[in-house]
Design a protein around this nucleic acid. Structure first.
Length: 384
DNA sequence: TAAACGTGGGA
DNA sequence: TTCCCAAGTTT
C-alpha cells in the first residue's frame, strides 16, 4: 500500500494506553487513503504528469469551480496543446477562448508565461515550485500544485479548500485570509505534509485536500459522517462546522452605471478594445459612455457616424467581486450609406464585425448576453 | 497591504 | 432577490 510506510504522525490520545500501543493513522495517511478510495481520479487534467496540462488546469481553477472550468479546459487544450502553440498564438486568441471565464489577467499571464518559457527556458517548465512561482500568474499555491502533480515535489498548497479544512480541523476562529492567520495556515499545511517523497502519495495527498474540500468538507452542510478527519476535528467536536471558517468581513459594494452603445450597420456591430489595465482588460466591448451622454451625439462627434434610429434595451445588472454595474444598452442603427462607416479598424482599437463573428471574439459575459439579445433585432433590420 | 480583478452556482 | 464565494495572484 502506498501510505503504510508513512505512518509517523500520530494522534497522542490514541497511544496513551500502557497495555497496547495503537498507532492511529496520521492526518496525511487518512487523507491519502480516503483520496484513493473516494477522491476524484477522472477529471480531464488528471492522469498526466505533463506540466503544461497541469499548469493550464491550475490557473483556470483559480477562484473557479471545476464544473465551470471543464468546457474551457477542453477547448483550450484542443486549440493550444502545448507551450509552443500557446506562445505562437496572439493574446487576443487566448482571451477569445477565455471569454466568459473571468479574471482575464489569468489568460494574459498564461500567454506571457508561455512566451517566457519558449524564449528563456527552451520551451520547458522549471522543475521546482520556487522557480515556477517566478512566472507570471503562478503564485505560491499554484506553483506548489504544479510541482506536486508534475514532479512529486514535497510542497504544500493552500487554497480555499485547505483553508476551510484546516480552520475546521484545528478550530481556527479568525478569518483565514487575514495575514497572520494565513501565515499560520501555511505553517500548518507544511507540517501536515506526508513525510515521504513518494510522488504518488504526495499527489494523492494534495488531490485529497482539494477533493475533501469540494466533496465532504463543503462550505455549507459538510458531510462529516464521511470525513476521515472527523475523529479529531475540533469543529466537529465542538459543533462549530457551521461557523468555521470565519466569514469574510462584509463590505458594501459600490454601484456604477454606464451606457453601452450598440452600433449596427449592414449586419455588423461596432466593438472597441478596452485598455489592458482595469476591468475586462484587453477585451472587445461596445463603446461605453456615461448615462447622461447622448448616444446619437457621441456617434456624430467621436465616430463621425450618423444615427437613423435609437432603441433602448432593458438595463442589465452585472455584479463583480468589488462593485455592481448597471448597463443601459441602446441600439443605434446607422444611416447605412455612409462611406466612412467601416473605416474604424483594429489599428484604432475599433472593429466592425458580423454578430456571429463577434460571439467568437474576446468579449466579456455581458457583451455576449447583449449580442445574443440583439441578434433577432438585427435580423429584422436586415429584412427591411 | 488592502484593493483590484469575473462569473456563475448554491442557499 | 440577495448574499456568499470557488483549485488566488498582482499591485
Amino acid at each position: 500500500m502506498l501510505a503504510e510506510k508513512n505512518i509517523q504522525q500520530t494522534v497522542p490520545q490514541y497511544k496513551q494506553s500502557s497495555y497496547q500501543i495503537v498507532e492511529f493513522p496520521s492526518f496525511a495517511d487518512r487523507l491519502v487513503q480516503w483520496q484513493l478510495a473516494h477522491g476524484r481520479h477522472s477529471l480531464p487534467w488528471q492522469g498526466t504528469r505533463d506540466p503544461y496540462v497541469i499548469w493550464i488546469s491550475e490557473v483556470m481553477l483559480q477562484q473557479t469551480q471545476v464544473n465551470t472550468v471543464i468546457p474551457y479546459f477542453e477547448r483550450f487544450m484542443a486549440t493550444f496543446p502545448n507551450v509552443a502553440a500557446l506562445a505562437a498564438a496572439s493574446v487576443e486568441a487566448v482571451l477569445a477562448l477565455w471569454s466568459g471565464l473571468g479574471y482575464y489577467s489569468r489568460g494574459r499571464n498564461l500567454h506571457r508565461t508561455a512566451c517566457i518559457l519558449q524564449t528563456q527556458y527552451d520551451g520547458k517548465f522549471p522543475k521546482d515550485a520556487a522557480s515556477l512561482q517566478q512566472l507570471p500568474g503562478i503564485g505560491r499555491s499554484t506553483a506548489a500544485a504544479i510541482a506536486v502533480f508534475a514532479v512529486g515535489e514535497r510542497v504544500a498548497i493552500l487554497d480555499g479548500n485547505v483553508k476551510r479544512i484546516l480552520a475546521r480541523y484545528f478550530g481556527i476562529g479568525t478569518y483565514p485570509s487575514e495575514k497572520k492567520t494565513e501565515q499560520h495556515l501555511w505553517e500548518l499545511a507544511e507540517d501536515l505534509l506526508p513525510s515521504t517523497q513518494d510522488h504518488q502519495v504526495l499527489t494523492a495527498y494534495t488531490q485529497g485536500l482539494m477533493d475533501l474540500g469540494a466533496l465532504v468538507c463543503t462550505r455549507a452542510q459538510p458531510h462529516c459522517q464521511r470525513c476521515p478527519l472527523q475523529v479529531d476535528c475540533k469543529a466537529y467536536r465542538d459543533n462549530l462546522t457551521a461557523t468555521l471558517p470565519a466569514a469574510k468581513p462584509k463590505k458594501i459594494l459600490p454601484t456604477k452605471e454606464v451606457a453601452h452603445l450598440i452600433l449596427l450597420n449592414q449586419g455588423h456591430v461596432l466593438l472597441t478594445k478596452r485598455p489592458t489595465s482595469g476591468i475586462w482588460g484587453g477585451l472587445w466591448c461596445f463603446p461605453e459612455v456615461t448615462v447622461d451622454q447622448n448616444g446619437i451625439d457621441y456617434c456624430a462627434e467621436n465616430l463621425c457616424l450618423q444615427v437613423e434610429r435609437q432603441t433602448e434595451l432593458a438595463p442589465l445588472n452585472h455584479t463583480f467581486t468589488h462593485f455592481k454595474l448597471t448597463i443601459y444598452p441602446q441600439i443605434l442603427r446607422l444611416i447605412s450609406h455612409q462611406s466612412s462607416w467601416k473605416k474604424s479598424d483594429r489599428e484604432n482599437n475599433y472593429l466592425w464585425v458580423g454578430i456571429e463573428e463577434a460571439l467568437t471574439c474576446a468579449i466579456p459575459a455581458p457583451v455576449r448576453k447583449l449580442l445574443l439579445a440583439v441578434q433577432p433585432v438585427l435580423r429584422t433590420f436586415m429584412h427591411e
